[in-house]
Design a protein around this nucleic acid. Structure first.
Length: 395
DNA sequence: TCTGGGGTCCTAGGACCC
DNA sequence: TCTGGGGTCCTAGGACCC
């Protein structure tokens, strides 16, 4: 385990909303919501009214009627993310991206070259502010887990170091919800036992926790509460799945409607795979029934592919098999994900591959590259609205 | 509180192989 | 006819995060 507090967790504040405020001065100081049907990001002015990301748009507007609602501009967020990650990698080669707007940085061993971790974090925050124009919070600690908790406590626009000799003193007064991995379900179980703080959690023995939360989660949480969970910063992590989904209204929805939506989703995912140079073996159909319970059906192909045709065939056969259940229970969401991702196989030169599927995919991709994603649409999808996309790990 | 759209990780059972 | 143990892969569900 590292001895000094040399892991940074750097996390852009209200990322999409901050980009909007940066690019439109009229939005500064005002509550801003990015997204329409669902809140993708809320500025801190909007959060003060209780608006949270992932909240339904209607509820958000009820909480904060004066909020300015702007549609997402993914290209702007991607560009800002690239600029910030360039600064991360300028700081240290040991960068583990977690999502479009946060990363772990290991700055151990840079002391003589760059100064103490807190000095490095201070400089990092200044550079992101000056060069990209965005606020960013940094947590500094001995482990990734604690650095992440620290940045959460320090937000927004903050810097917080947890010194190695002050870890439990920092951790134990915190509410259990602050722990990375404790969500609503676990928090409710703990609350029911009168456990509200990390300190109370730490006093429970492992068997008690395991009986409450299951063998794996119980032991893991015990380790977290005592801060015994070192994990190294992993450079060059790549995404392991890629998917798209679409919520359907209450319905009813004909099998043809659902199939058309699924085709559009597979189109999108396959195109993103090809753009990223990835290919996948496992096709997962994601379903949500009328009662909002979820289910998945998956199938693993013999070889990884980035081709629309085989991916669509697999997705369709899963949907066909689920049709009787859908007829019975109704459907409110359909999605598809491609997992088991690998680098895309190298395509042989065109003259040697009279493969109509490859040629069609390439032609469709080329048209969309030049004229935009909406330039070509499946006939069955005409009149439907495309959904939103949110990139995560770098491809 | 009526419900997005992206993801990751963990668990558990069954098939299959040695 | 019954009997071990271990490892990997596949499938499905669920919790959690942004």
């Amino acid at each position: 385990m590292p001895t000094g507090a040399s892991i940074l967790h750097a996390d852009l504040d209200a990322f999409y909303a901050s980009v909007e405020q940066r690019d439109d001065p009229r939005l500064r100081g005002r509550p801003v919501i990015v997204g329409g049907g669902v809140v993708l990001a809320a500025s801190y002015e909007a959060k003060a009214y209780g608006v949270q990301s992932a909240m339904g748009g209607r509820q958000a507007r009820r909480l904060c009627p004066e909020a300015v609602v702007v549609p997402p501009r993914m290209a702007a967020y991607t560009a800002a993310s690239r600029a910030v990650f360039a600064i991360f990698r300028d700081t240290t080669p040991w960068v583990e991206g977690l999502s479009i707007d946060e990363a772990f940085l290991d700055v151990g061993g840079l002391r003589r070259l760059s100064g103490s971790p807190v000095q490095i974090a201070t400089r990092l925050r200044r550079m992101v502010g000056e060069q990209v124009g965005l606020p960013i919070t940094v947590g500094v600690a001995r482990t990734k887990f604690l650095a992440k908790v620290a940045s959460g406590v320090a937000k927004p626009d903050g810097l917080l170091e947890v010194p190695p000799d002050g870890e439990l003193a920092f951790l134990h007064p915190l509410p259990v919800e602050r722990l990375w991995g404790v969500g609503p379900v676990t928090a409710a179980k703990l609350r029911a036992r009168g456990i509200h703080t990390v300190g109370q959690l730490a006093r429970l023995d492992v068997p008690t926790l395991e009986s409450l939360l299951g063998a794996g989660a119980g032991g893991h949480l015990h380790a977290l509460a005592h801060h015994r969970d070192p994990r190294p910063v992993q450079v060059g992590r790549r995404r392991s799945s890629m998917g798209a989904q679409h919520a359907l209204g209450a319905g009813p929805h004909s099998p043809a409607d659902v199939d058309a939506t699924l085709s559009g989703l597979v189109d999108r995912v396959a195109r993103r795979l090809r753009a990223a140079g990835r290919a996948g073996r496992t096709v997962t159909l994601r379903l949500r029934f009328a009662d909002y319970t979820a289910a998945t059906r998956s199938r693993t192909l013999r070889r990884a592919t980035d081709r629309t045709t085989p991916l669509l065939a697999a997705a369709r056969s899963l949907l066909r098999a689920a049709q009787p259940e859908l007829a019975r229970r109704g459907i409110t969401l359909v999605g598809v994900a491609v997992g088991n991702l690998d680098d895309a196989p190298v395509q042989p030169e065109l003259p040697f591959t009279p493969d109509r599927g490859v040629e069609l995919d390439n032609a469709v991709d080329a048209v969309r590259d030049r004229f935009g994603a909406a330039a070509l649409t499946r006939a069955t999808l005409l009149g439907r609205r495309p959904g939103l996309e949110m990139p995560r790990l770098p491809d």
